[in-house]
């Protein structure tokens, strides 16, 4: 794998792991809020835990989408594609990545408008938390921008590989995910869980 794609992978994986820990943290915070409400007659963050979880969701989903894209796990319907001759099928793979890049670019561009407006107006959420909206929107927007960057990098690298005749390597960047790859992942999970179907 070339170094640009490698860098994107590194960043995407690091952010996805941080995001995963954020989800775990929010689960614990929401639980603590429920228990505090019930047993201490108090709420955490003046009832703003749910709002915070909302912001976390926006950040996690925008930033996490890059790793999903690198793993080629965004849902695509390849029923028709599977029937096509190989060159046409590869063309559709490139087309799919191009549309993804444009769609996430549109989202990022629109998200920029929302962020810039909140920043200019110093907008606050109308809740007891009164969060400055530019902060969570900025994090979200940066995630969308990184997603667009990831898609563009994948597309450009795949085209370069194809021009060099390295079809298989190109498919590893933009092709549809095969059943074997899914299986590898599932198996590794079960093996690492240590039980591995031994008892029946």
């Amino acid at each position: 794998m070339d170094s640009v794609t490698q860098h994107v992978w590194t960043v995407a994986r690091f952010v996805a792991r941080a995001s995963g820990l954020l989800v775990v943290l929010m689960a614990l915070l929401i639980s603590a809020d429920i228990l505090a409400r019930q047993f201490l007659n108090a709420t955490l963050l003046s009832g703003g835990v749910g709002e915070l979880a909302g912001y976390a969701l926006a950040a996690v989903s925008a930033w996490g989408a890059s790793l999903t894209l690198l793993k080629r796990a965004h849902i695509r319907i390849d029923t028709v594609q599977a029937l096509l001759p190989r060159p046409l099928s590869i063309a559709l793979d490139l087309f799919a990545m191009a549309t993804f890049a444009i769609a996430s670019g549109v989202l990022a561009w629109m998200g920029w408008g929302t962020f810039a407006r909140s920043f200019a107006l110093d907008s606050r959420s109308m809740t007891p938390l009164a969060a400055p909206l530019a902060v969570p929107q900025g994090i979200w927007l940066a995630g969308l921008a990184f997603l667009t960057l990831t898609a563009v990098v994948l597309l450009v690298q795949a085209v370069r590989l194809l021009l060099r005749g390295e079809r298989r390597a190109a498919l590893e960047l933009v092709g549809t995910r095969t059943a074997t790859e899914d299986l590898e992942e599932q198996k590794s999970v079960v093996e690492s869980s240590g039980v591995g179907g031994a008892r029946a």
């Binding site: 409400r37 007659n41 108090a42 709420t43 003046s46 009832g47 749910g50 709002e51 809740t127 007891p128």
Partner: peptide, 14 residues
């Protein structure tokens, strides 16, 4: 409204 409920000594919930 949350400010008001807090001042009354209650717990506001959204």
């Amino acid at each position: 409204m949350a400010d008001m409920v807090t001042t009354l000594g209650g717990t506001p919930i959204t």
